[in-house]
């Protein structure tokens, strides 16, 4: 009577890992497809930073940005807000999207159904993280295109800048996705998920200099925000896209990319541990 359900390799054997990877990749395609079929996701997660870029760039079109020493810079609003909205998009595609999505899946029966199948939980998570990366990347491309085509932002041409963009985006998005999955345990039901997750995301963005220039925030808020990953994502994006000379606007008057890497790396590990400790298909009673 043993081995009746057999035919599957042990999850930690090489064949088992290959199976998990194969299912996970298939799951990414499934997750991306279903993401774009949900109008609310497309409007409030995917297009929201694009909309905000349009608003900020138009409203502050004539505004000048202080250089932090009593003078002003030449920087245009669209130019300043493009990296901020890229960081915002990373946060929305990961934390907001998955925080709500996984909380809803937990209460609408999706996770219960998957729990009854031989779906490896890791493959499911690869699907969700992959969804955040693919949709986040599409969102970044839309943002960059709108920035260039509509608001005439000049993008950097050096390979170094795009390499910075690449690693900040990848590290930021995976971290953000993991934190989203972990945060999905906070709402008590799928129905309350947006009410719980969206204010968190919004407040963190204000405190992290997404909507308001970071150097204008009170020092205590800057310090609090630097304990969270979002300010670092935004800093990394500014480092990638703004001209070198604008580093003088930053804390310590440098891009501090080492700080970006360390902060996001630490939060990546925090996210992995939190997901490992909190993610369950269902709570068995």
């Amino acid at each position: 009577m043993t081995g009746l359900g057999g035919g599957l390799p042990h999850p930690l054997s090489p064949a088992g890992i290959a199976r998990t990877a194969r299912i996970g990749v298939g799951r990414v395609a499934y997750e991306v497809r279903t993401y774009f079929r949900q109008l609310d996701q497309v409007l409030f997660t995917f297009l929201f930073p694009v909309l905000m870029l349009g608003i900020f760039a138009s409203v502050f079109e004539t505004m000048t940005f202080p250089d932090g020493r009593g003078g002003t810079t030449e920087i245009a609003a669209a130019e300043y807000y493009l990296p901020a909205m890229l960081a915002s998009g990373i946060l929305l595609s990961g934390v907001q999207n998955l925080g709500v999505d996984v909380a809803v899946a937990r209460t609408n029966g999706t996770l219960k159904r998957l729990a009854g199948t031989p779906m490896p939980p890791v493959a499911f998570l690869i699907g969700k993280i992959g969804q955040a990366v693919v949709t986040g990347l599409a969102q970044a491309i839309v943002l960059l295109a709108v920035g260039v085509l509509v608001f005439g932002v000049a993008l950097p041409t050096s390979a170094g800048s795009w390499a910075t963009f690449g690693w900040v985006f990848a590290l930021g998005t995976v971290t953000s996705a993991l934190l989203g999955v972990a945060l999905s345990r906070v709402p008590r039901s799928g129905r309350s998920a947006t009410a719980v997750i969206i204010p968190i995301v919004l407040v963190v963005q204000f405190a992290s200099g997404i909507f308001i220039q970071f150097s204008l925030l009170p020092e205590w808020m800057q310090q609090a925000a630097q304990a969270l990953p979002v300010a670092w994502m935004a800093l990394g994006m500014r480092a990638a896209l703004l001209p070198e000379s604008y580093a003088m606007l930053e804390v310590g008057e440098s891009w501090n990319l080492a700080g970006v890497g360390i902060a996001l790396g630490v939060w990546l590990v925090v996210g992995l541990i939190a997901v490992r400790l909190t993610f369950r298909w269902i709570r068995r009673s």
Binding site: L4, G5, H10
Partner: peptide
């Protein structure tokens, strides 16, 4: 997981 591969489950409420 291997055990679940032998099962088909149609829940009461999907």
């Amino acid at each position: 997981v291997a055990w679940r591969a032998g099962l088909g489950i149609v829940l009461q409420s999907s």
